[in-house]
């Protein structure tokens, strides 16, 4: 991994203080995951998505931008004009998307480096693949559109929030698109599932549970699924799953997530319409 020589980082042999505090055991945390009345620690039901706040045109320098808040998760996405592809000598029939997904160093519980690490590079790739199907790439051949997503606070579902916000930012930037793109995340653990996990829930879903002797034969799915959908065409533009899942688990999650993406899409539509009305009114006032 390339070393960042320009910034002063933390001293090398330091460890996070959290490791020395008395923390709840994993089993304990799982019990609060979904308690007996079917509610999660923040009061949501298993299939309930958090409230979303969307705002467009937040970054004046960028051609298009969007700010999204999903519960405590805050992501800001900016899109820039198409520019020539750097370091490229042959002609590309379709335009390229350059996606950069980054956690701000202060966004997560453990401080992140200023440079993209492998997890962020992977999320950038997932985001790029999801957005590529939504954008009319043949409209800007041999050009590249830059999309930068910065997570200001990480409380779970950052990637799906970034994809949704990127869709809006691209629309605002005037990049030709086929459809409205929205995304949602889903987590499986301990025999239950949660839609739109918080960072605590994401951490729980990322760990394989130790098998108890009595439940050795029963398979308990565990994992995280990210799905991004194109609204009108009803096509899956991005799919990424990780963990230990059966095919039936993936199938079952599908309905829940697609309903969630459809709900988010309504919100996106409202926002876009609001922005158009605002622009028209501003132009009318200017004249």
């Amino acid at each position: 991994m390339p070393v960042d020589n320009r910034r002063i980082t933390v001293p090398e042999n330091t460890t996070c203080y959290n490791l020395f505090t008395k923390s709840k055991s994993f089993k304990n945390r799982c019990e609060h995951f979904i308690n007996t009345s079917g509610k999660r620690p923040d009061g949501r039901k298993a299939e309930e998505h958090r409230k979303i706040f969307l705002q467009m045109n937040v970054v004046t320098q960028a051609k298009g931008s969007a700010y999204i808040e999903v519960g405590k998760t805050k992501v800001i996405v900016s899109v820039f004009d198409p520019r020539g592809i750097p370091n490229n000598s042959d002609y590309k029939q379709n335009g390229e998307l350059y996606c950069e997904f980054k956690y701000a160093p202060f966004s997560c519980t453990k401080r992140r480096l200023h440079q993209q690490d492998s997890e962020e590079k992977q999320k950038s790739l997932i985001m790029k693949r999801s957005l590529e199907s939504a954008v009319c790439r043949h409209e800007f051949p041999n050009f590249q559109v830059d999309i930068y997503a910065l997570v200001l606070e990480n409380d779970g579902s950052t990637l799906s929030a970034a994809i949704t916000a990127a869709g809006i930012a691209l629309a605002q930037a005037g990049i030709p698109m086929y459809d409205i793109i929205t995304a949602a995340e889903f987590g499986y653990q301990d025999g239950t599932y949660v839609l739109d996990p918080t960072s605590q829930e994401e951490r729980i879903c990322s760990v394989t549970m130790q098998e108890n002797n009595d439940s050795a034969n029963e398979f308990k799915p565990q994992g995280i699924i990210i799905l991004s959908m194109l609204l009108t065409h009803q096509q899956v533009s991005g799919f990424h799953a990780n963990g230990n899942l059966r095919l039936s688990d993936v199938n079952n999650s599908f309905d829940v997530i697609s309903r969630a993406t459809a709900d988010i899409a309504n919100l996106v539509k409202k926002n876009l319409v609001k922005q158009v009305i605002k622009n028209v009114q501003e132009n009318a006032i200017k004249k």
Partner: peptide
């Protein structure tokens, strides 16, 4: 069981 699903291309 499925451990990972990813998209190979756009």
């Amino acid at each position: 069981n499925i451990t990972t699903v990813l998209q190979g291309s756009a």
